[in-house]
């Protein structure tokens, strides 16, 4: 569904060039729930932004359902973002002036889909995510978890090939975090969604099918969930420790 090949990205500051991503290649299959983890500065968010075509990159290809989206024109890219990608941001990025329902409808409004079907679909999704009671509320009137579930619902409105989530649980308490993860799992199970999530939260990542670990801009390794979620979480924590997370600075 999503394929990244030999992706490289660097930032320039004065005369210094910092390589953030170095020849990164990965694949995400249809219906897979994949997380990207890694220490701070490993390039997780940059990778997501490159895949979303939010930022340019120097080398590499990004294929979405076998179509290269690397060098699309603005108009084409907009269509891809609207119909083939769904986004979930850390700070929700809901429009404060629109109700939950209207926010969820937004991708279809942009795509100019027929109103009746759009509203029906939005209501169904709200029901699915248990947010039908807050449909008419504004973002400022609902909790963080509800906001993020609204964001997930919005991302699913156009049935995209892939949902790209940037630290979706970053701003949430544990209860809300679980609710959002459940929303992703529900999307995967009931709508066959493919989810690509950047996170530093081992708990959230432990619900994924697979975790790609980045270090210093390169793919350090991949972990497949084979057993229980708890065992997978232990495995993730071990990996993070190996990456330097358990080092005592005063030793």
């Amino acid at each position: 569904m999503l394929e990244v090949t030999h992706l490289s990205k660097s930032y320039t500051s004065g005369t210094q060039v910092y390589s953030v991503l170095k020849d990164v290649s990965l694949k995400v299959e249809k219906g897979e729930f994949v997380a990207v983890m890694g220490p701070s500065g490993s390039g997780k968010t940059t990778l997501l932004n490159c895949i979303s075509c939010f930022i340019p990159y120097e080398e590499g290809k990004i294929l979405l359902k076998d179509r290269n989206i690397s060098h699309l024109e603005e108009r084409e890219l907009s269509k891809v973002r609207n119909r083939q990608m769904g986004f979930v941001f850390q700070d929700f990025m809901l429009l404060d002036g629109l109700t939950v329902f209207e926010n969820i409808c937004l991708p279809q409004i942009i795509a100019r889909r027929p109103v009746v079907q759009m509203e029906e679909k939005a209501r169904n999704i709200c029901r699915l995510f248990g947010i039908e009671k807050i449909m008419d509320k504004y973002p400022a009137e609902i909790s963080g978890g509800e906001r993020q579930r609204t964001a997930v619902a919005r991302a699913l409105m156009n049935q995209p090939y892939v949902i790209l989530a940037d630290e979706p649980t970053g701003n949430l308490d544990s209860k809300s975090c679980r609710a959002v993860i459940d929303a992703f799992l529900q999307a995967k199970e009931e709508m066959g969604a493919t989810i690509f999530m950047v996170t530093h939260d081992s708990f959230a990542a432990s619900f994924c099918d697979r975790v790609i670990v980045l270090k210093d801009g390169q793919v350090y390794g991949e972990l497949m969930r084979t057993g229980s979620r708890r065992a997978f979480m232990d495995q993730l924590l071990d990996t993070i420790r190996t990456l330097g997370g358990d080092r005592d600075d005063y030793e």
Partner: peptide, 15 residues
Amino acid sequence: SKTFGVMLALGADRK
């Protein structure tokens, strides 16, 4: 900027 950023991210046409 937030409104436009969200719109663009959701695939609205810049033009």
